[in-house]
Nucleic acid binder design. Structure first.
Lengths: 232, 232
DNA sequence: ACTGATTTGTGCGTATGTATC
DNA sequence: TGATACATACGCACAAATCAG
C-alpha cells in the first residue's frame, strides 16, 4: 500500500506537479486523497525522504528536493559546461581505465574492425556531489596511446584530446533509450531500483569527421532531463 | 527466479545483444548460463513470448521480435516521415479532441496566459499497427479555431496546419525524461507495467518563431529509440 | 530419402517455500 | 500448531520439429 503511494508521489514529483509550490500537500490532505490512514501515508513520505526526493521539516512540511539537471544534447556536448551553465558544480570519479578489445558496438561506431584494441574509461559524473550519470567511453587505442595515464592523473577530457591534436570535437549522433537499472547500477547511481534510467549512446567525431569516441552513458532518470535544441 | 531471468533477457534484447543473430541461444545454453533447470528457463522465455519480445518455434529457437523504431528528433520532426523512412507503416488513432483551459505548462510553452483556451488532441501513434506512443498536443484555440473538426475527419496534421496558413513548422526544443507508466497507460501502449517509457516534451514553432504546438509524447520504451543528429 | 545432431515441447515425479484456514 | 492448496524449482525421459550432411 504505502509503496504504491510512494511510487505515485515519486512520479508526481518527477512530473513537477509540486515544482511551483516546492512542497507536498499536508499529510492530512494526502491521507484523505489516497483514502488511507495518516500513518500509512507517513510511511510513504518517509520512503521518499529516504530516497532524497523530499526533506520533511517538523511543523513546516515536506519540501521537494529534486533539482532537475538539464543535460543539453547539442553538437557541442560538454559535461562540465552543461552543469556550470545551471550553476551546478561538476565533478567526476574515474572508476575504471583499461585497454580492452572493442565490443561489437564500440567497433561499429568507431569504424574499427571487431576486436581492435580500444581504451575504456568509466566515469561517475556528479552534480554538486550527487551522482547523475555513469559514463563509459571507448577511444581507439592506436590513436590515443597514453590517454589512460592522463585520465588517471585527473586531466580534463578536453585537455587530453587537445594533447592528441584534437583541437575540437563534435557530437555526431546520440541514441536515447530507457531501461531499468541493474541492482549494481542503482547502487552506484544512488537511486531506487524501481526507477528507470536514461541511456544515451553517443559518437563524437573530430573536425574531419573521424570518430574519436564512442560513449554509453546512463543517467539517473529522476534527476536528469535531456534537452535537445534549447533555443527556447 | 524465472522473473529475474526474464527481466535480464528482456534487458539484453533491448540492448540488441542478439540483434545480429536474430534469436536467443538455445534453452540448454541459457539454462546452463543462469544455472537453472530448463523448465525454469522455459518459463522465463514463455513470459518473453507473452510480452511479444520473442517468438518461439519448435525445433528452431526463440526469435527476437523486437523491431526498434528509430524516432528522429530533428528540427523537422514529423511522425509519418520518421516511420516511412524505416519502411514502417504509420497510423494514428484520435483518442480525444476537445477545447480546454491551458495547463500551467502548456501555457508557459505556448507563451499564453494561464487558463487561455487551447485545443487538446490525444493521439495513439502506431507503427505497423503496434502502438509506439501516446501523443498529447496543445494548440492555441484563438489561432486554430476549427482544428478539432478537421482532426476528427482524419486530416493529416501537416495539412491541417497549412489550412491555417502555417506553410512549415520547426521543432524548437525537446525535453526527454523517463517514467514508469501508469497501469492505464501501459494497457493503452500494450506494454508491461514493469518496463519504463520515454517522455518527450516538445514545442513546435512556425517560421516566425511563434509557438504553434506544445506536445507531451510518451513512447514505448522497449520499442522506441530517440535519435538526435543521425548524420551517421 | 535417410541419419544423426540440435532444439523445442511435454509428461511425470519430487521437493520446497508460502499463503490461508 | 497442523492441514491444505498453490506456485516454484529440479531431474529425467521422450516426442516432435528442424537442419546439415
Amino acid at each position: 500500500m504505502w509503496k504504491q503511494i510512494a511510487e505515485e508521489l515519486a512520479t508526481e514529483i518527477h512530473d513537477r506537479v509540486y515544482a511551483d509550490v516546492g512542497r507536498l500537500p499536508s499529510e492530512n490532505e494526502l491521507a484523505r486523497r489516497f483514502g488511507v490512514n495518516r500513518h500509512t501515508l507517513r510511511q510513504a513520505v518517509a520512503a521518499l525522504a529516504q530516497q532524497g526526493l523530499v526533506a520533511v521539516e517538523q511543523g513546516k512540511g515536506a519540501f521537494i528536493q529534486q533539482e532537475m539537471v538539464d543535460y543539453a544534447l547539442s553538437r557541442r556536448t560538454r559535461f562540465s559546461e552543461n552543469l556550470l551553465r545551471q550553476g551546478l558544480l561538476p565533478s567526476k570519479q574515474l572508476l575504471a581505465a583499461r585497454e580492452v578489445p572493442a565490443t561489437e558496438r564500440a567497433a561499429r561506431h568507431l569504424k574499427l574492425r571487431r576486436g581492435t584494441r580500444v581504451l575504456l574509461a568509466e566515469m561517475l559524473d556528479e552534480a554538486n556531489g550527487d551522482p547523475i550519470a555513469l559514463a563509459t567511453a571507448y577511444y581507439p587505442a592506436a590513436r590515443f596511446a597514453g590517454l589512460l595515464e592522463l585520465l588517471n592523473r585527473g586531466t580534463e577530457t578536453t585537455q587530453i584530446l587537445k594533447h592528441f591534436g584534437v583541437a575540437d570535437y563534435l557530437r555526431a549522433s546520440s541514441r536515447i533509450t530507457t531501461q531499468m537499472p541493474t541492482d549494481q547500477l542503482a547502487q552506484l547511481l544512488r537511486q531506487p531500483k524501481t526507477r528507470p534510467v536514461l541511456c544515451v549512446e553517443s559518437v563524437d567525431v573530430d573536425l574531419e569527421g573521424v570518430p574519436i569516441k564512442y560513449g554509453e552513458t546512463v543517467f539517473v532518470g529522476d534527476r536528469v532531463q535531456l534537452v535537445v535544441g534549447s533555443d527556447a
